[in-house]
């Protein structure tokens, strides 16, 4: 059925092309058989609007035909999907990652609650206790005062209250997701730097 329609369309198309070639190369011969000038004077070809309508309809029709007919017909086996659905396996620190994602999404939705900050505060205090050999209360106080690292982003994130500068608060409003991720990254890096520095000093 489709094949016959296709063949008919092809035949009509080929005939039209042959006619066009005949008109180009031997207009006289074709003109004696067909009323060429009468066809040219018909509204479909002489008036601009008619020409647009007639040819536009044929063109759009062809586009639709092509769009309908196109498709993949590879007879071979299909390729396995690129990424196998990742197993929902627990990975080390996966719960904290979940907390980070929850906090990021909360920030994107305009909510302020932050589940990561208390955990990182406790981590920074632990690291400080180890590195500076101070007691936990002192370490905790220094973290809350922002006096434990040179990194201003990490210090401000763990510091008590909303002591962040206007610029920083504005950044958090404008780019909520990125700001949370950056703060967490910088803070973890600052804690890692504390330990690295101590290791280097001891190595010396």
């Amino acid at each position: 059925m489709i094949d016959r329609r296709r063949r008919l369309g092809g035949a009509v198309g080929a005939a039209a092309v042959v006619l066009a070639a005949g008109l180009f190369f031997a207009p006289g011969a074709v003109g004696s058989v067909l009323p060429v000038s009468a066809v040219a004077r018909s509204t479909a070809l002489s008036a601009a609007a008619g020409r647009v309508l007639a040819l536009g309809c044929v063109g759009v029709g062809c586009l639709l035909w092509i769009a309908r007919a196109s498709g993949d017909e590879d007879p071979g086996p299909t390729l396995p999907p690129l990424s196998a659905p990742e197993a929902d396996e627990p990975v080390v620190g996966g719960d904290l990652d979940g907390d980070v994602e929850a906090t990021v999404e909360a920030a994107a939705a305009g909510a302020g609650h932050d589940e990561v900050r208390p955990e990182l505060r406790s981590l920074a205090a632990d690291a400080l206790v180890h590195v500076d050999d101070c007691d936990r209360t002192t370490a905790r106080r220094r973290v809350e005062a922002g006096e434990w690292t040179d990194d201003p982003v990490a210090a401000a994130y763990l510091a008590d209250g909303s002591t962040g500068s206007l610029r920083r608060r504005l950044a958090a409003r404008l780019r909520p997701r990125r700001t949370i991720r950056r703060r967490v990254d910088r803070t973890v890096a600052a804690v890692e730097a504390l330990l690295d520095e101590q290791e280097r000093e001891r190595g010396r």
């Binding site: 620190g93 904290l96 990652d97 980070v100 981590l123 690291a127 973890v188 804690v191 890692e192 330990l195």
Partner: peptide, 14 residues
């Protein structure tokens, strides 16, 4: 690269 993995790393180092 995940923050969770890195935090677990710091805790383990301590």
């Amino acid at each position: 690269d995940r923050p969770g993995g890195r935090v677990a790393g710091v805790e383990r180092r301590l």
